[in-house]
């Protein structure tokens, strides 16, 4: 079931001198099986927005619906309504347990490596599944599967998370969320600070999760990632949503790019320059350097 934001605003430290409106009247539809990037300058509200998607923040005004879970604040009180129940008379209680939503939509924070806390990697990855009711044995199975998915082998499970490198810690932290097998995986700048190979492996992992039918939503500043992997892109600025479009349309809209200080990937600029000079390559095929070379090869061999 889709994700819907209806006129969502969020103010930090409301009714204090520090009050700051981080989201302003954002309305948004995300279909099932989406692969979406949120972009925008630092402070544009991206992280605030994603924290609404698993109920970590509740909108100051407006409504958030994730699958059948509806979240809002009414008269200063948190309101969690399960839409499946609210339409069915046999349920007296219409609320849902927030844990169900957290299991449905898994959020990986910025710098998740700083949240590791257990003695071993195994215990750390098992923490989430156990919280959601898995037995020790089940949790261990999930951990074994998750650690391999993030590109580390099982020998890491017995190690202390604190002796790992930054990149390895990041993978362990992401494994902790992937182990829950969420239907929607949300990641706040998952590749920041990774080396190029680590970045590629991480993005291939998210693509695999998307290909398996899940929704993947990520916050990023990396336009190469936007071009190569995602199907949709949302542009944020000063708490407002400026656009919800495709990477191809975004990177062709020069006026918009200038206004928002977004720079298209260099490979995209190169492709456009070649097209402008009469080379018959197809812009929508260009995802990265190797697809550019494939297009050049096609044109030159025809």
């Amino acid at each position: 079931m889709p994700i819907k934001l209806k006129d969502v605003s969020y103010t930090y430290s409301q009714k204090t001198p520090f009050a700051f409106e981080a989201l302003k009247h954002v309305s948004l539809d995300i279909k099932d099986h989406s692969f979406l990037a949120l972009i925008g300058e630092t402070g544009s509200g991206k992280s605030t927005l994603v924290q609404h998607l698993n109920g970590l923040l509740l909108p100051t005004s407006g409504e958030v619906q994730i699958s059948n879970y509806m979240l809002s604040i009414e008269n200063g009180k948190r309101k969690y309504v399960d839409l499946n129940k609210s339409q069915n008379k046999k349920y007296r209680k219409k609320q849902f347990d927030i844990r169900n939503l957290r299991k449905y939509a898994g959020l990986v924070f910025q710098f998740p490596e700083y949240q590791l806390f257990e003695e071993t990697v195994l215990k750390d990855i098992c923490f989430g599944p156990k919280n959601f009711g898995a037995t020790d044995q089940e949790a261990e199975m999930m951990a074994k599967e998750a650690i391999q998915l993030v590109g580390l082998d099982e020998s890491y499970l017995s190690r202390s998370p604190f002796e790992l490198s930054g990149g390895e810690k990041r993978r362990v932290a992401i494994a902790g969320i992937i182990a829950l097998n969420p239907s929607v995986l949300i990641l706040d700048e998952p590749t920041a600070g990774l080396d190029p190979q680590g970045e590629r492996e991480m993005m291939e992992l998210f693509k695999k999760i998307y290909d398996a039918g899940k929704t993947v939503i990520l916050v990023t500043h990396n336009m190469d990632i936007v071009l190569k992997y995602v199907k949709e892109v949302i542009v944020m600025k000063k708490g407002e949503m400026l656009a919800h479009t495709t990477p191809l349309k975004l990177f062709q809209d020069e006026k918009f790019l200038i206004n928002t200080a977004i720079e298209p990937p260099f490979v995209f600029k190169v492709a456009r320059e070649l097209i402008d000079n009469g080379l018959d390559i197809e812009l929508d095929k260009i995802k990265d350097i190797s697809s550019l070379v494939k297009e050049i090869e096609r044109v030159k061999h025809e």
């Binding site: 930090y12 520090f18 630092t42 402070g43 992280s47 700048e189």
Partner: peptide, 11 residues
């Protein structure tokens, strides 16, 4: 005069 916790990572 802003509180650091209300700033974004980059800020």
């Amino acid at each position: 005069d802003k509180e650091p916790s209300n700033l974004s990572g980059g800020q």
